[in-house]
Design a protein around this nucleic acid. Structure first.
Lengths: 242, 242
DNA sequence: CGGCGCCTATTTGTCATACAAAATTCTTGA
DNA sequence: TCAAGAATTTTGTATGACAAATAGGCGCCG
């Protein structure tokens, strides 16, 4: 039967949709660690897809550490310690499944743990080209007027800083920063005083990195994160989207 | 007895073998970011497998951020910034593809960045049950005689500490610690003085966590990592290749 | 001459079917 | 009683076919 669909929908691929659906249901707690998932044939019936598409979704989820499949057993949800929480999709599903303020709290906590150290490393180990990228990101931040550009350039700034640290093992943290900033801006977007203050704090980081002053870079990052946290806790409730 | 004679072949599946083969070739630099991989049919011929198996491997590698596939284009290697380096497989391929000392250096650098903060968080936020697990791991370390048990209990200790921190976003770091310790012990295994010293340093961490003394926990962890680094740099070269 | 849009070729995406392999559970025989 | 083996269920792999997407070439038209 043709007429399959002219959906042309955003994220297209069927297996990706199924993956997201299952992933969200796992992260939301509908399937707890240790629980057995329906078998592939059932998923296929549930989502009107072939077993092939289901299997591709299952494979992706397995690669992200969420589940494990074995013949005759089926797919079982892995313990949370195995979940690859720094995967873009997994973190997004995680965010969607939990309280917004709690999510921000944990991302900010993680940032406070790693970003000062990253800043210090960046100051000590950056290459000229990497510094250039950082400076460019700062200028983009300074020149941004639309909220969208503010977020994008802010993310780029922290990514550039991460690159300056020259340690690939830390790169996955980029996801956390991105999620934190994206969600943060819903709190801070209408507060211009905060943005100009943040700009100055970012500038301090650039200066410290440029002068290869590790401790200063660490302190500057800590100051930035502290200021951000203050804005969060001072804001009563973010207005919902739209 | 149970006919378990298969020795739990880690990844016997065909698609897993292909995934590892391709993954290693990417991590080794044979396929650089931006490069186009052979198409699925070619991989199938190369490894004597069906397109089905190849596709499953491709899907896993995509989920790990190494590649991206598009119709008519094929599979393209993603920029390194997208690679999920904290995935168990990816990190293993990475380790296998680089100089051992350099790998240890970067893992230790990452640990110095993160673990002191983890220790501090652990001291402040652990639950009684989590502390119990940490203590048990310490005792296992103290009682270990075989090298294998030393490594395993050491890894368990740091995993337990990570759990004490109560921040799931940090959990993926467990992989780095595991790899670092596993590779470290090749340096330190025959040095009993180091192990007893390390044991004491671990005990300091337990004490600080048990008394909820964040700064002390941070310092104790820093001391442990510093001592470990000294052992590494003091060791000329582990027996390896010529 | 140059740009726009159709056409085509290539590669992945999806479907359907069949069978193999693994592992739990049941069955059965000593 | 209990262990060896058969039955059963579910994933793993293979094959073949077609759909969908898209880069790149072709030709039409301004």
């Amino acid at each position: 039967m043709t007429g399959r669909g002219k959906t042309r929908s955003a994220k297209g691929n069927i297996h990706a949709k199924i993956e997201r659906a299952i992933g969200e249901r796992i992260l939301s707690g509908e399937f707890v660690p240790g629980a057995l998932l329906p078998n592939e044939a059932d998923w296929g019936k549930t989502y009107g897809a072939s077993r092939t598409a289901v299997r591709e979704a299952i494979k992706s989820l397995t690669a992200k550490g969420l589940i494990q499949s074995r013949p005759k057993i089926g797919s079982r949800v892995e313990p949370r310690a195995r979940w690859n929480m720094l995967d873009r999709d997994v973190l997004e599903w995680h965010r969607a499944a939990m309280d917004r303020k709690a999510f921000l709290a944990s991302t900010q906590e993680a940032r406070r743990l790693v970003e000062p150290g990253i800043a210090e490393l960046a100051a000590r180990k950056h290459s000229p080209a990497q510094l250039e990228r950082l400076v460019a990101a700062y200028h983009a931040m300074a020149g941004a007027t639309a909220t969208k550009d503010m977020v994008a350039s802010d993310v780029e700034f922290h990514d550039a800083l991460l690159a300056c640290a020259n340690n690939e093992l830390l790169v996955p943290f980029s996801i956390i920063i991105e999620q934190a900033l994206t969600n943060l801006f819903d709190y801070t977007t209408h507060k211009n005083p905060h943005y100009s203050r943040a700009l100055k704090l970012h500038q301090n980081i650039v200066r410290a990195v440029a002068t290869a002053d590790g401790p200063a870079a660490r302190d500057a990052m800590l100051a930035l994160l502290t200021d951000t946290d203050n804005v969060i806790t001072a804001t009563p409730a973010p207005r919902k989207k739209r």
